[in-house]
């Protein structure tokens, strides 16, 4: 199949890849750009393991064709935090035991990152609803919800003291 030239900004860097237009964004990220933090659980847009941030929206990258990502600005889990400076969400997930096998975790954190920008002071119910596009088979969600609420609280504290 003929390939197309795909230009995107991924985690702040401009990238160019040659890809079949039918390739899914999830596969381009994982296989062409070696960003394997974006996981694949279903390829049918049900599980959210492949969630990335695209043009300031959460998208399930298994349901976006590469060709649709032309010119997009994308943030994956690899773009949140660094080994020396974890993103607050990453720290809170660890602190509150919000992960077990870790397979859903990048999608969860990437979604939570966008969710907290949509709603900076969520209730527990808001979190449960806002995160309902992401499945986890290990944790039963209770500690994920706790981690996200704790992040919101800390972010608001930081804002107030600033």
């Amino acid at each position: 199949m003929e390939k197309i030239r795909l230009n995107m900004t991924v985690n702040g860097k401009d990238v160019e890849v040659l890809t079949e237009p039918r390739q899914l964004l999830a596969h381009v990220l994982r296989e062409e750009l070696n960003l394997t933090g974006t996981h694949i659980g279903c390829e049918t847009s049900h599980c959210g393991a492949c969630t990335v941030d695209m043009n300031d929206m959460s998208v399930k990258s298994c349901s976006v064709f590469a060709a649709q990502a032309q010119g997009a600005n994308i943030t994956t889990i690899e773009g949140l935090g660094t080994p020396d400076g974890l993103h607050l969400l990453q720290e809170m997930f660890k602190e509150h035991h919000g992960l077990q096998c870790g397979y859903c975790t990048p999608g969860m954190i990437t979604r939570a990152y966008r969710f907290l920008q949509e709603n900076g002071s969520p209730t527990e119910e808001d979190v449960r609803f806002g995160m309902s596009g992401n499945l986890c088979r290990c944790t039963g969600y209770q500690n994920i919800v706790k981690a996200i609420l704790a992040t919101a609280e800390k972010m608001n504290e930081m804002k107030e003291s600033a």
């Binding site: 994982r30 994956t76 720290e91 602190e95 992960l99 954190i109």
Partner: peptide, 21 residues
């Protein structure tokens, strides 16, 4: 004790079978 696995997993640095190339 907090989990030692989590630093890797929260940063998307796990190594699952589909990550092997």
């Amino acid at each position: 004790r907090k989990r030692v696995e989590d630093a890797r997993f929260t940063q998307g640095k796990g190594n699952y079978v589909d990550d092997i190339k």
